[in-house]
Write a protein that binds this DNA or RNA. Sequence first.
RNA 1: CGGGGUGUAGCGCAGCUCGGUAGCGCGCGCCGUUCGGGACGGCGAGGUCAUGGGUUCAAAUCCCGUCACCCCGACCA
Length: 414
Amino acid sequence: MRLSQLFTKTVRDAPGGEVSKNAQLLIRAGFVYKEMAGVYAYLPLGLRVIEKIKQIVREEMNPIDSQEIIMTSLQRKEIWEQTGRWSDETVDIWFKTKLKDETEVGLGWSHEEPIVEMLKQYVQSYKDLPLSVYQFQTKLRNELRAKSGIMRGREFVMKDMYSLHSSAEDLEAYYNRAIEAYRRIYARLGIGDDTYVTFASGGAFTKFSHEFQTICDAGEDVIYLHRGRNIAINEEVIDDAVAEMGINRDELEKVKTAEVGNIFNFGSQKTDDMGLRFTDANGNQASAYLGSYGIGITRVMGVVVEKLADEKGIVWPEAIAPAKVYLIRLGDNEAVMRHADELYATLTGRGIEVLYDDRDLRAGQKFADAELMGIPYRVTISDRLEADNKFELVVRQNGVQELLTQDELLAKLG
RNA sequence: CGGGGUGUAGCGCAGCUCGGUAGCGCGCGCCGUUCGGGACGGCGAGGUCAUGGGUUCAAAUCCCGUCACCCCGACCA
């Protein structure tokens, strides 16, 4: 993409009323636009990041036999009444509205009930199980207070997956496969080393649910870590967990984290409540077992910004950067411009994503923008370098700089 | 939802205490010089001072209401 064609602009100053680092940087770099408190639009560069995160998630969900779908934002009141979750006393973040004929509908803050309702249509026999479906959905939650930029909004993109099984054992096995898939996802997103499978509250069927918590100062959670045994426990269940697992509390390290994923074993409670049953091999009606698995796509994006950014701006891991290379051409020397165009074509032709800074700006501004946007590799071409037939390559993450011939450069960028 | 803070040009801010009809920086447009770390000079465009009401000869400024935004807390599948 040529930056001269990109409609967004970078700005020096972040909006005054925006304190969180992720929102400041993403707004300054032109990745997101704030519509209102806790509600952000994703612009071309930000959308690229979102799509890359989603693609990584797809590549890990599909192998565990989950099928992608997309449910609806408008939801029926009756479905939620079956499990008692339509009431504002039980769920206090509902956005509710009415159709023209006064029918009450909800705006989806979660999709567990609608998914189960939908699956009733397709599951009748044990031969139909197990099954797993997932989607990327914009969740709408009427939070009392939005905060932390894109990390806790009223509207955000979430990947939610649901699996249905004919036995508790089968669900348990799948649940563990999902945990491993999630581990691979966070590793690929560049936050694997700081992300822990954490015991948390909330299992309807099991004593604990599992959260994926990433160490992050901007996070809202506190967990206790036992690095030796690789155990992590959310503060909210610390007393129960310590008792249950026979852990000495003094061995635990207290850290601040952001929840980037959460998985639940519902047992058969929800399916029983909603009347999703199937015929087993003996011809008898049996209960189905439900698991639920979420990842906050936009929250993960915010966490990555928070964790990896430096004083110059964002630092994207290559896997989710909006482009791999930021190509800068300096000056208006015709040969330089031609060679820059050619290099842009060559890289693009090899499937390498390039942000080509073909704007008529000074060197300092281009360098600053490359750093603010956090593109992994910066390649510069100028008349000075042209004289030696060299390109300058700078790695965003560590600032290491090299002067390379075109062949060396292409070899390096793969 | 409780407490606190803030709304003035696209963005960041000053002006408000002590009322007299709005200013600075960035950005934007044109001209010239510059051109490897956010250049410089000149000219110029751009504002219902969040909003509704009140006080006053006169309100960005004082008073009351409302809305929005931010922070702390509570909340958080």
